[in-house]
Design a protein around this nucleic acid. Sequence first.
DNA 1: AAGTAGAGATTGAGAGTTCAAGTATTGGAG
DNA 2: CTCCAATACTTGAACTCTCAATCTCTACTT
Lengths: 174, 174
Amino acid sequence: MFKEPSRTVGRMNDEPRWLTAEEQLVWRSYIEAATLLEDHLDRQLQRDAGMPHVYYGLLVKLAESPRRRLRMTELAKYAKITRSRLSHAVARLEKNGWVRREDCPSDKRGQFTILTDEGYEVLRRTAPGHVNAVRQAVFDRLTPEQQKSLGEIMRIVAEGLQPSEAGADLPWLR
Amino acid sequence: MFKEPSRTVGRMNDEPRWLTAEEQLVWRSYIEAATLLEDHLDRQLQRDAGMPHVYYGLLVKLAESPRRRLRMTELAKYAKITRSRLSHAVARLEKNGWVRREDCPSDKRGQFTILTDEGYEVLRRTAPGHVNAVRQAVFDRLTPEQQKSLGEIMRIVAEGLQPSEAGADLPWLR
DNA sequence: AAGTAGAGATTGAGAGTTCAAGTATTGGAG
DNA sequence: CTCCAATACTTGAACTCTCAATCTCTACTT
């Protein structure tokens, strides 16, 4: 990405393992596609649903949850965002009337975020357009094998970046 | 993602083509990995280099360019970001002394962004850490086949989202 | 029964991004 | 040569995100 791999022989090698030419191409493709895609979906949803992609994702998670509600921390975990970011997001969605908060009865610190009927309606109205955008940008262009492959690859990458559930209490084993 | 595919037979079908269960899993994995990864790299670079991932990418593009300079529009195109975003970004990088501007002699509207020695130095110092982060998060976890596959897939997706160069003037052929 | 470390969530300020509108310049068309 | 649509880039305001507090409440621990 920035230097040639060193051909150093016969001595300690502190040289970082630079990306090979092929790896660079892969990485570049990834960055470009990810940037363009997120950008594309953000614009699509901003235009058609009045919110960025992340916010849409939050509503989807809520819609899929029992009683259309989730605790903040849970929602944050599912959406892979920080609690702080979620707080701001929910504040905004609440202002839109798409979501409302409710105190958790069993834990006074806790808050539920609940998808309102209005929020559900927004989702119902805009989901088709969004699915269509995703299809056009991704699935319609890939063979079934590539789709499967993409799933496996991204699952691996995601797992590597999570505070892994299993064995989380046995940090010395990681 | 939100509804079951309809089994409608024998009439016009306006029903959007919802994602199948497998497609949903793929998409979910993609979103999660992409979110976690961008987040991870942003944090890593913010900590070690004092800038977000996109800004780092800009410096890299400049470093790779002849005379370490690029026209704004060009740089924006390479980095897949809008000119507006780039303007703000360059303003910030300029304030850091990592980049400077120069007027284009042949086109008075034009501006070059030029990587300063100081900017180059930041890159030299922080590149190893960044490459390492990328390796750890991505390449070290994937087989060579998966790496190749990822490259092909993302190249396809990226191409689909670009204002395709070739035939751009023959929109009816697209 | 306090005392306290930690969990759940929010806040505000600063940094980054978007969108629409702005300025300046260029390359033709007539 | 004049006009003007298109290009190159910038700007400001509104919005979003991050980071470091902060606040409240819970669950121990002693």
